[in-house]
Design a protein around this nucleic acid. Structure first.
Length: 736
DNA sequence: TGGCTCTGCGCC
DNA sequence: AAAGGGCGCAGAGCCA
């Protein structure tokens, strides 16, 4: 069958979006079938009749037949390839993704090209694998150690219950001169001999490739089997290329390997051989993704990788360091909040005349709002409750209590939970590939315990349960007004630059400029004290809102009616104004003061994205942008926020690396210093008592000059100042 | 019972 | 019509 005809086998759901399919099929004759099919034979007969050799499809029944699974997930299989009786099948997400997902069309086109232009795809290496045995180990090792082995992909499988490694898979990539070949091997972790093999293979000189390798390294470290020459990570590679796209290995494989199908369900197998096969396939996929990325990725993505990947190592150190929990303090805090919740809940129940009102139930809160005559309020979150509270003192009495209970329960359920520790330590993960902007993302640790370390509540409640190690104090060093400075310089807005870099208090300068009051009436420079807190706070909120391109309606929501009316009152605004008009007035004051920020700066960002599909920051970090900031305000907001957030992240990441190499790893300092975490604009560490100078060294390394081309076309250099927070801080709550 | 989505909320 | 960015986790609710 030499015909190039293709078939799109979809569902009725796809019908409205069929016009989007046409450009993707690049002029190839494509038949369309939207009615349900019940057998593969039916599809095959149709294809024979129409000389169709390839089927692009969103049909779940067909997927079910091909995978022999009752209820497969189309999303998991999107991009997957099957071949049967000479017909090729490629699954894609429902066509409505072309409009509902920013990268929907991009992925559809990419997956369709598996059929439309198969020659544009790399031919993957043949997958061959074995389970290691004493008979084969030496020859496999010798091959992996040979100079034409250019890299080795590794992946471990673990038992969650005891943090043991179940098996380790390897795929070696061999350069044959004209092509790349691979060999995969799995080492079950079931004897001293196999552990010895794992150590040997991990110590091989070839560069190692992982997918999210900090996970693997955490476990391998426990076995004293850390890998040597870990240089590549497919999660970081892909994040460096398309940060807005998913980064799991299954997605990466469908993205980079033409004739591969989703294989992750093999992991559920109870058959050992099948499980090892799954492990081997993971490493093969990792190797193939690596090769395809190297072949395809543009220079800017490679530059991104050089910025991002090195962060793996300080992140690994921080993750394995963790922070100590004072278990007694935890118990006490927990008990005290539990008592608090009990008391308040009893009081709430009495007020409502019910038993066991659940403040976590949005349904119950909906009913409550209705009973209080506030059925018009949509949500049941804190803002909605405070809106209702503002309407009547009785509402306020009840709903403020509800909110208080919720706050306490949040602490109890998320942060004051016993048993999150490992050896009395709170661990966490810090992932350089976790965000669209290049910030690190945090989550619980690879050992299935610990906490997200970047959202610990600000107050003492939780931080007073985090204790420094014996002989150490906590220190924290943060970049001051970093995003505001970054915005000012990126926009090239002279007045904002002046305000944010001046010696005067930034928010008071704003308050003065926005609302026409004398600066001296708002802030006392001599005493470094705020004199008009309400006005300064108002300026702070307005600045924050405007920076994120907030609309008046949202500003009303975030400030709350109480604050909006209070603002109108002390600014003597007309009494007839609606809350939204008041908010609009506030935003207008910002725009009058800093017209470039929501003016030329935004225009510049839009044109950058529209002309290049990319935003490149001052440090060279580039974000590929799938969304359209001209037609989609959400996208515009995201890209506007990106510029400052990303620049700040990049600078802090550089600082994190410097602190890692100059202090945490340095032979002169390593015994007196612990690198704990990076928290968006700060670095958390511990220093040995008596070694306060280390905090100074951290500060020095955080103050990195940035040279930036502003949206006004001028080049400027600036440095965000860092502030040290120390003070005999035995507990994290005591850094100040 | 487990898995999924929705809702809400902690941080910067 | 109107739309504040970036994250991860817990509980409720719902479905199979």
């Amino acid at each position: 069958m030499s015909s190039q005809n293709l078939l799109f086998l979809g569902t009725q759901q796809d019908k409205p979006f069929l016009p989007r399919l046409k450009p993707v099929m690049k002029g190839i004759t494509t038949f369309v079938k939207l009615d349900a099919v019940s057998t593969i034979t039916e599809v095959e007969l149709y294809c024979r009749a129409k000389s169709v050799s390839g089927v692009l499809t969103t049909s779940i029944p067909l997927l079910s037949r091909l995978t022999d699974k009752p209820n497969p997930s189309l999303d998991a299989y999107s991009g997957s390839y099957f071949q049967r009786n000479g017909i090729e099948y490629v699954f894609v997400n429902p066509l409505d993704h072309t409009v509902s997902v920013p990268y929907g069309t991009f992925l559809l086109e990419r997956y369709a090209s598996k059929l439309v232009s198969p020659k544009s795809w790399r031919t993957p290496s043949k997958f061959n694998w074995s389970v290691i045995s004493p008979r084969t180990a030496d020859s496999i090792y010798a091959a992996f150690a040979s100079p034409n082995c250019i890299a080795i992909a590794i992946d471990i499988e673990t038992y969650r219950e005891n943090l043991a490694i179940r098996c380790v898979g390897y795929t070696a990539i061999f350069d044959t001169g004209s092509d790349f070949e691979t060999t995969s091997v799995v080492i079950p972790m079931d004897s001293d001999w196999t552990l010895h093999q794992v150590r040997k293979f991990n110590a091989l000189p070839a560069a190692k490739i992982f997918q999210n390798g900090k996970y693997d390294c955490a476990y391998l470290s426990r076995y004293n089997a850390a890998p040597f020459n870990y240089l590549w990570d497919t999660a970081n590679l892909f994040h460096s290329y398309y940060s807005e796209l998913p980064k799991d290995l299954a997605f990466l494989q469908s993205f980079f390997v033409r004739n591969a199908a989703y294989w992750k369900d093999l992991a559920e197998s109870s058959d050992l051989e099948t499980y090892y096969l799954y492990n081997a396939k993971d490493t093969w996929a990792t190797a193939e993704v690596f090769l395809a990325w190297m072949h395809e990725a543009p220079a800017w993505a490679k530059k991104n990788y050089t910025l991002e990947f090195p962060l793996t190592f300080p992140a690994h150190l921080s993750e394995m360091t963790g922070v100590k929990r004072d278990l007694q303090a935890l118990k006490a805090a927990k008990l005290s909040y539990e008592t608090e919740v009990d008391t308040k809940s009893a009081s709430l129940d009495r007020m409502l005349g019910v038993k066991g009102f659940n403040t976590n139930s949005y349904k119950q809160k909906q009913v409550l709002l209705r009973l209080l005559g506030c059925g018009d309020i949509e949500g049941t979150d804190e803002k909605s409750l405070s809106k209702a509270a503002f309407r009547h003192p009785l509402n306020a009495r009840i709903l403020e209590l509800v909110t208080e209970i919720q706050k306490d329960r949040k602490l109890l359920s998320t942060y004051l939970v016993e048993g999150k520790e490992l050896n009395e330590r709170i661990l966490y993960a810090l992932n350089p590939h976790g965000t669209d902007t290049g910030r690190l993302a945090s989550k619980e640790h690879h050992f299935w315990c610990g906490l997200q370390i970047q959202n610990i509540p600000r107050g003492d409640a939780v931080k007073s349960t985090i204790v420094a190690d014996e002989g150490f104090f906590f220190g924290e060093c943060d970049l001051e007004q970093a995003e505001a400075r970054d915005t000012a310089f990126a926009a090239g807005d002279e007045s904002l630059i002046t305000a944010v870099t001046g010696t005067r208090d930034f928010h008071s300068v704003n308050a003065s400029a926005f609302f026409g009051r004398a600066y001296d009436a708002i802030y006392d420079d001599g005493k470094k004290k705020t004199k008009d807190k309400p006005l300064r706070d108002l300026a702070k909120r307005v600045n924050h809102g405007a920076n994120y391109n907030m609309g008046a309606g949202v500003l009303v929501e975030t400030m709350g009616l109480k604050n909006i009316y209070a603002a109108a009152k002390f600014l003597s605004l007309p009494k007839s104004w609606t809350p939204k008009e008041i908010a609009q007035y506030l935003l207008d004051q910002f725009d009058k003061t800093y017209p470039r920020i929501r003016g030329e700066y935004q225009t510049w960002i839009i044109s950058q994205v529209l002309t290049h599909k990319r935003l490149t920051g001052a440090t060279g970090w580039t974000r590929y942008c799938f969304d359209n900031p001209k037609t989609n305000k959400r996208a515009l907001n995201a890209y506007v926020a990106h510029v400052a957030q990303s620049l700040n992240a990049m600078v802090l990441n550089q600082a994190y690396l410097k602190v890692f190499y100059d202090i945490a790893l340095h032979p002169d300092h390593r015994n007196n210093f612990k690198l704990c975490a990076q928290i968006h604009d700060s670095i958390l560490f511990q220093y040995r008592i008596g070694h306060e100078y280390l905090a100074e060294m951290v500060k020095d390394r955080m103050e990195i000059p940035v040279t930036i081309l502003g949206a006004d076309g001028k080049i400027r250099t600036f440095t965000v100042p860092a502030a040290i927070k120390i003070g005999n801080a035995k507990y994290w709550s005591q850094t100040e």
